[in-house]
């Protein structure tokens, strides 16, 4: 029961960090507030018995902060306080209200916090992984066993998506092609 309160307190701190990140005028401070959200998330993962995820989250959060600071440094740091047009606001309110209603309806079906879903399903995949993970894959860490043995194709797909995303980012950032397209644009503007 105490763990539920600890995690709830961490999530409330994350919510405060998230609101700060979105509402601060200075972009650099909002990125640092986002970093606080990420590191609190890593602490919550540690409490919830997921050390592997916590490590990954810390590494990814550091890389994310480096990338985001790289984009904002030396650039237009002040943000406009004005919001988007009225249409955007009404749309946002309707969508968030729908999300809240939908979420609360779904959560009614969930088991209470602390009772695993895998216990309610007979022969669920997770129970099999826990029972036979060591014997079948030889890995003591079951998360690794699932990632690299039982669901290795999933990891292959992950690597593919990551490769495509990085390839796309490099293609967009490449200087040579950019110059070429710039000249073309100027020609189009002139004509």
């Amino acid at each position: 029961m105490t763990l539920e309160y600890i995690v709830a307190a961490l999530i409330i701190l994350m919510i405060m960090g998230a609101v700060t990140a979105l509402e601060t005028d200075n972009l650099l401070s909002s990125i640092i507030a986002l970093g606080a959200v990420g590191f609190l998330l890593a602490i919550a993962f540690l409490f919830l018995g997921a050390p592997d995820i916590a490590f990954t989250q810390i590494v990814v959060e550091i890389l994310l902060l480096i990338i985001l600071i790289r984009v904002t440094i030396h650039r237009d740091l002040k943000t406009t306080t004005a919001h988007r047009a009225m249409f955007g606001w009404t749309f946002a309110i309707v969508l968030i209200a729908f999300l809240t209603w939908f979420g609360l309806t779904v959560f009614e079906e969930f088991p209470a916090f602390g009772t695993a879903v895998m216990d309610r399903v007979a022969d669920s995949a997770s129970v099999t992984y826990i029972k036979e993970g060591l014997a079948k894959s030889g890995a003591g860490n079951l998360v690794t066993a699932v990632l690299l043995d039982f669901r290795a194709f999933d990891t292959l797909g992950e690597a593919t998506v990551l490769f495509c995303a990085i390839l796309g980012a490099l293609a967009i950032l490449r200087q040579k092609a950019h110059k070429h397209s710039k000249e073309k644009d100027q020609e189009a503007d002139a004509a």
Partner: peptide
């Protein structure tokens, strides 16, 4: 949905 800055 509501922010104008692309980084936000």
């Amino acid at each position: 949905l509501t922010k104008r800055n692309i980084v936000k």
